[in-house]
Design a protein around this nucleic acid. Structure first.
Lengths: 360, 360
DNA sequence: CAGCCTTTCCAAAACGTTTCGGATGGACGA
DNA sequence: TCGTCCATCCGAAACGTTTTGGAAAGGCTG
């Protein structure tokens, strides 16, 4: 027996075994150039043999970094975690893993506020950075982190989003393009918008995109009928949808803010005998899995969540490396044409179309 | 200016401010008896004023504990996180927060195996203990943690579950009691069992409970029809359910392994014109929120997930305090009577009933 | 008043890592 | 031969906490 063998699995143990100093072992593993190639190899071999994994506390103490990125799971009571989040988390986790970081998720229980949990994470140094999602037009979490100067990336943005890093899909452009397509290519003039009551920023951008495009086209015959429903209160959607479908001035195309809403429109249309796409066009947003299996398949926008999540991980890296440099990314969703769209049922007799391309 | 003011928000800073030693400040905050009450108060006040939060890395380094409890989120690709998990996580998180611990969740991306992620967490000391869920009859995660001697609590159990801590609901007893009630109180003799193909332990226990009770009752007229379907492949359920419902020897009571399955039975029964509960009794298990809103309301077992999750947090505490003492808890689910059950449609003319209590 | 016990406090070590500022030895140029 | 430079290595400090093993001071007992 030696005097005292150092505890297994530490730099000290490897150093003792190899007759080197702790410094050299540390630097060899970190790949510094001031340690001989031969030595590096010896060290690497010994480390591998000993199943060496650096103690995170030791590293954290000296670097001040935990290697964790924090995420607040928006699970409330019995609420379901939607497919969007599931995929996003998976992508984010994978992206961070590539950087050697871990994703640290927490829920907020009913007894705490989201702000309390956030404060705890920041104060206790549980995470080096945060990822925020489901951003509202005004968001106290964003305000808190900005004020504290704590690194974070928002997936989505607040109304005033100049002074922090975010990544978002360009819903405004998407809905603007969408209207132009509906109008010019398919001849729709009676547009229905099914939106949510909650004041989320993405709602505003999408609505603005649609409304702005309608204004810009300058056609006085174009009408817009809008209904707002509570986002997660599925039970209350029916009334709004039926009132749109049963109105004597029924829209020929209904644009829904999310796929969930669009699918609900599809269901009610079926039960009311309104055929899609012959007499009604329905467009969604998100491209959730169910959108693929509906009948007819839902025409919608794909946010490529996985890739967005990966990019978020990249932004986190940037934010940590260069904290004072903010990064903002707007990604364009991809339009997915499935079966829920078609030309407007009653083509206007002799209108003043600008360009009239017929889809091949 | 002082020589060098210690960094804000550390024990050293508070000690310097108060003219005390670091030791005393540390012990005062920890509530040791060898520091005067007056001093304790001074320290507490100063700590509060400075918004002092102990640096977790420092604490971790010396105690060897991270304060994290790990949890592997079973999110796979686009798979939805079910309501069960959402509630469980929330409860677990709340229970751990009371102990000053944090719940550290990770997903496993498609490129890694669950075992790899688990190994990483254990090796890197990311968590002090683990919570495992969705336990299979044989489970490599359980084996791994047992072999490594790493503290964990399983929610559910493997077939051989003698040497680790777990908490589970007593599905065997529940299904056994269920049959007795169906048979003795409601007069059902043609039982259908809709189960899953996956070899989960909870499946086996529930099946065993039902089958055992049927054997025990000794009535040769009792028949059991069983169908196994893939748990998450909802599309494939219909065939199995219809074959049961359309069989000329249709069961008068169908017992489903989960509420999802039971609700699907309800739907198919409705579309086939089989009235529930008049000509068919349907029983579920889990009491998911949707079970409350179905038509008729689903009679099922409630696992009181929230409370189970809280208890899991308690078990974690025990496991960390007394690592060599294993804890095993079997909790009884609560039977929830709603509208999907009724007496057997054709009462047997003149049978040999043992006890015949009629429900009031 | 001496000895002992209590109360209250503290110095120093330890945890495992990274990194700064050398130290050592040999090769090479002058 | 001496000085310079490079390649390679290492000692020691630092991060912030907990804990061990006292130490100092005062009160009490005899």
């Amino acid at each position: 027996m030696e005097i005292t063998a150092p505890k297994k699995g530490t730099l000290k143990a490897i150093a003792a075994e190899l007759g080197l100093s702790i410094t050299t072992v540390s630097r060899a593993l970190a790949g510094y150039s001031d340690v001989a190639e031969a030595t590096k190899n010896r060290v690497r071999a010994a480390a591998a043999a000993a199943d060496y994994v650096p103690n995170s506390a030791g590293k954290m103490l000296v670097t001040g970094r935990s290697g964790f990125v924090g995420f607040l799971l928006p699970v409330r009571e019995t609420a379901i975690l939607d497919p969007f989040l599931g995929e996003y988390i998976t992508g984010l986790s994978a992206g961070l893993a590539e950087q050697g970081r871990d994703l640290f998720m927490t829920t907020v229980s009913s007894s705490q506020s989201e702000a309390t949990v956030l404060k705890h994470i920041v104060d206790a140094g549980r995470a080096d950075a945060m990822v925020l999602t489901r951003i509202a037009e005004e968001d106290e979490r964003v305000d808190f982190l900005v004020k504290r100067g704590f690194p974070f990336v928002a997936h989505g943005r607040t109304l005033d989003h100049s002074d922090y890093s975010w990544i978002d899909t360009d819903g405004k452009q998407a809905f603007s393009d969408l209207f132009q397509w509906l109008y010019q290519e398919l001849g729709h003039k009676k547009i229905g918008l099914l939106s949510i009551t909650e004041s989320m920023t993405f709602r505003r951008y999408r609505e603005d995109g649609l409304i702005g495009a309608i204004k810009d086209c300058g056609d006085p015959d174009v009408t817009l009928t809008t209904r707002h429903v509570p986002r997660f209160d599925t039970a209350s959607w029916g009334e709004a949808i039926r009132s749109m479908l049963e109105s004597e001035n029924r829209p020929s195309a209904i644009v829904a803010l999310t796929d969930e809403l669009a699918l609900s429109v599809l269901e009610h249309a079926a039960s009311l005998g309104v055929s899609v796409p012959e007499s009604l066009t329905v467009i969604g947003y998100d491209n959730i899995p169910a959108a693929h299996y509906s009948n007819p398949g839902l025409t919608t926008f794909d946010q490529s969540i996985r890739s967005t999540a990966q990019q978020t991980a990249g932004l986190i890296l940037d934010t940590l490396d260069t904290p004072d440099q903010i990064q903002q990314k707007l990604v364009s969703p991809i339009f997915i044409r499935r079966g829920s769209h078609g030309p407007a049922p009653k083509p206007v007799p002799n209108s003043l179309k600008t360009v009239s391309k017929t889809k091949g």
